[in-house]
Design a protein around this nucleic acid. Structure first.
Lengths: 122, 122
DNA sequence: TTTATATTTAGCTATTTGGCTAAATTGATT
DNA sequence: AATCAATTTAGCCAAATAGCTAAATATAAA
């Protein structure tokens, strides 16, 4: 369960162009970011996204991207799994579910007339 | 339709404690923020939320809250309707619908197996 | 065991942000 | 016309953010 502080952290993390782009690509398969599910946990395939391969898509220095990824991780937007000397980045779907739920609830309450806005009142 | 820049602006706006609290209250009826729909547009009732009444809920100076509200407006999260010498603040449901749709789509694609995360692969 | 690869940490700097007060603006009321 | 009320603008300052390079750490490969 995400509390208010968690949610603010999530929005803050997504409110930056580079982090948003990283997020978007990880969550839409824009990078080769999956871990081969036919193999055991510690046998991660090479094309899974790691920090360096994400950084290649940006014109910023590696430590800058590393710090952005840390912020996305701290906001529970992604997970970072260490295997050997690489860090594998994965989307954190639980967080997305919760955030989708929050916005979905707002829309639902609007449709039920619990909240309303001027332009849509008759 | 919100483009990427719009979305980043929305998240940035929500990624700050004071703005998030303002947002939350406006969208959950936490303030008396509605405009009487039984009266014509220019006859806005007294208890509709204006800048000063929102500012009363915070320990910050009025111009600070005013600037936060401007940022929420610029991000299309709220609308600000001027009537006489007051500004009435309303939730912008269209934006919420779009954002709900974005996160909803991520969850949907996850459930359809289009995207996936390590911990949930079998 | 030396070197290469992947990543983070540290420390620096420029820019942005978020707070403040004072002043300006706009419309309402007296 | 003068004053009051609601809000924004301007200008200032401290703190946070986001970039960089260099150095440190950890594991892999030779």
């Amino acid at each position: 369960m995400l509390n208010m502080e968690d949610k603010i952290k999530i929005f803050k993390a997504l409110g930056h162009e580079t982090r948003f782009k990283i997020f978007k690509n990880i969550f839409t398969g824009g990078y080769a970011c999956s871990i081969d599910d036919s193999k055991p946990k510690d046998d991660i395939i090479a094309q899974a996204t790691c920090v360096t391969s994400i950084a290649e898509h940006f014109d910023f220095a590696l430590p800058t991207i590393s710090r952005h990824l840390k912020e996305l991780k701290d906001a529970k937007i992604i997970t970072m799994v260490k295997s050997k000397n690489k860090i594998y980045i994965e989307p954190n779907i639980e967080t997305m579910k919760e955030i989708a739920g929050c916005f979905g609830l707002i829309v639902k309450e609007y449709e039920e007339g619990v909240i309303y806005q001027y332009d849509n009142t008759k």
